[in-house]
């Protein structure tokens, strides 16, 4: 685990711009995200935080009329380089979505989906082990170990979201992106997932978009505040929440805007 005072930069964004058609969603973002930390992206709706998140695994590519400029590198390797294989990139950068989106397959097949398409398990036994390990890490194993063949969609909302986390970490990514992963969940399920993030931080770099100030304060080491497509302020979470440099940030955090 890297020391928080002396972190290793994992993701480096320089002058990132994103246009959707004629509308500019990001205006030149410069941001470093550190390995083995949870970075929270906060800001009012439409501020570009989700757009930035989706730049990291190039999920914006699938949106019609979306253009990305600037550079974004992971471990010093440019993600938008023409030689980069998007499929491989996304295997390294997992993603958990706002709404739990388990595939209409069994719990087992949901988790095994990624390893299968990437050929990560040589035989059934190692795939079984991988599925079990992923479900355990996502804190879901105890609840589902007796019904792995049940449909993933039969689980409760919180369980579904943990299943999606298990599915994302089953391909053993370096980075896990989370786009408001708890917004559709009740406080108890949220608490379970927040604990999980703290746990996952040891192995992964986590970037989370959240609308909950308390959540950002609880779980993240660093926080970046976005507003209208600009990165207003970023730094250690404690600093941002106690002594924000910008008046705008303070207004948002204290609930005056947003």
């Amino acid at each position: 685990m890297t020391n928080i005072e002396n972190p290793k930069v994992k993701i480096k964004a320089r002058n990132m711009t994103v246009h959707y058609g004629d509308a500019q969603a990001l205006h030149g973002i410069d941001l470093d995200l550190n390995a083995n930390e949870v970075t929270a992206l906060i800001g009012p709706s439409g501020c570009g935080k989700s757009t930035f998140l989706r730049c990291i695994n190039r999920m914006n590519d699938v949106i019609d009329g979306c253009r990305v400029g600037g550079s974004l590198s992971i471990d010093e390797q440019d993600v938008y380089d023409a030689a980069v294989d998007v499929v491989e990139l996304r295997a390294r950068v997992g993603m958990v979505f706002q709404k739990p989106n388990p595939f209409p397959k069994s719990i087992y097949d949901n988790v095994a989906y990624g390893p299968r398409i990437h050929g990560m398990a040589q035989d059934r036994a190692s795939l079984d082990a991988l599925v079990e390990r992923s479900l355990k890490r996502a804190g879901l194993w105890q609840e589902v170990k007796d019904r792995l063949s049940a449909s993933g969609t039969s689980l409760s909302g919180g369980q579904q979201q943990r299943l999606c986390i298990a599915r994302a970490i089953a391909v053993n990514p370096d980075i896990v992106l989370m786009d408001e992963p708890c917004s559709a969940l009740d406080p108890i399920a949220t608490a379970v997932i927040e604990e999980l993030m703290e746990e996952l931080r040891r192995d992964y770099t986590i970037v989370i978009v959240t609308h909950s100030m308390q959540q950002a304060a609880r779980i993240s080491q660093r926080t970046a505040y976005f507003h209208l497509g600009d990165l207003v302020e970023h730094g250690q979470t404690e600093t941002i929440f106690t002594t924000p440099q910008h008046q705008q940030t303070e207004a948002y955090i204290s609930g005056k805007i947003g």
Binding site: V87, F97, N101, P102, I117, A168, L177
Partner: peptide
Amino acid sequence: LRDGAAALG
């Protein structure tokens, strides 16, 4: 669902 699969590579 499509996004989920795409995000898994």
